[in-house]
């Protein structure tokens, strides 16, 4: 989609068009529909199935999760491409924003797949708790990711608010190595106006501050993921080199 340039502050019509476009992009690129997740909410892994995951070797489970994570990232790439103005950015800046932001958006989106009533997440077609991921050998990362999902769910965002927040996470002019920071800044500024407009309309202005607080948590979770990957790749360099998805390696190693 084209990004219509307009004077600042943007007109109400422009804000509403931008909001609609982001919401549509989010809906069209979500890996799972909310109704689908809701219907499967109590489809839990059996004891035997959990045991099978826990019996996988560290490298087997890392590979399995790297494949799942890469699938989720691919949907985020599609989302980014449909954010008005994103494709108008230089290729370097598109890559930079996705390299630094795709995992953050995956984590935000993960909260849609989370059941707070029993602390389980949708994975491989069923819901499972942190115990499912035991063989990864990074319990602290998993607990931190689940805690984050809990805190996101507590905000009870609508799909529209979630869509806007995901676009804000991605379109971040503070990322290092951007060539046209000004252009990213202008996109970001309009998205911020959209979020304020939406929260005002929903009478939930207090959410704005809470959402901006999540940004630093996201960044620390991503650092922890890269730290764990570094630890893993030192122990299993061949696994990373030969069987991890190429996109995962490009983004995270």
């Amino acid at each position: 989609p084209e990004y219509p340039y307009c004077p600042y502050p943007p007109s109400l019509l422009h804000i509403e068009e931008l909001c609609d476009s982001i919401v549509r992009s989010h809906r069209d690129t979500s890996q799972f529909r909310l109704e689908e997740l809701q219907a499967l909410r109590w489809k839990l892994f059996s004891r035997e199935e959990i045991h099978a995951y826990q019996s996988k070797s560290v490298d087997e489970m890392w590979q399995h999760c790297a494949v799942r994570l890469t699938e989720a990232v691919q949907y985020v790439v599609e989302f980014a491409k449909r954010i008005p103005g994103f494709r108008g950015l230089g290729q370097n800046d598109q890559i930079t924003l996705l390299k630094t932001g795709s995992m953050e958006v995956v984590l935000v989106r993960m909260s849609r797949c989370f059941n707070t009533e029993n602390s389980t997440v949708f994975f491989d077609g069923k819901f499972g708790s942190t115990e499912l991921f035991k063989s990864l050998g990074c319990g602290d990362l998993m607990v931190a990711v689940f805690d984050f999902a809990h805190s996101m769910c507590a905000l009870r965002l609508t799909e529209q608010q979630m869509a806007l927040f995901c676009s804000l996470v991605l379109i971040n002019p503070d990322r290092p190595c951007l060539e046209d920071r000004g252009r990213v800044h202008r996109m970001r500024r309009d998205l911020e106006v959209c979020l304020s407009h939406m929260l005002h309309r929903d009478n939930q202005e207090s959410l704005q501050h809470k959402l901006y607080q999540k940004v630093s948590v996201l960044q620390s979770l991503c650092s922890l993921h890269v730290e764990k990957l570094h630890w893993f790749s030192q122990r299993y360099p061949l696994t990373v080199h030969s069987v991890f998805p190429p996109l995962y390696k490009e983004l995270f190693t």
């Binding site: 691919q74 790439v77 599609e78 491409k81 449909r82 494709r87 290729q91 370097n92 598109q94 890559i95 930079t96 996705l98 390299k99 190595c177 190429p246 996109l247 490009e250 983004l251």
Partner: peptide, 17 residues
Amino acid sequence: LKEKHKILHRLLQNSTS
């Protein structure tokens, strides 16, 4: 960056489905 991110670059080049 394009050279180091060939897969991502290709995904970005593909038209949206």
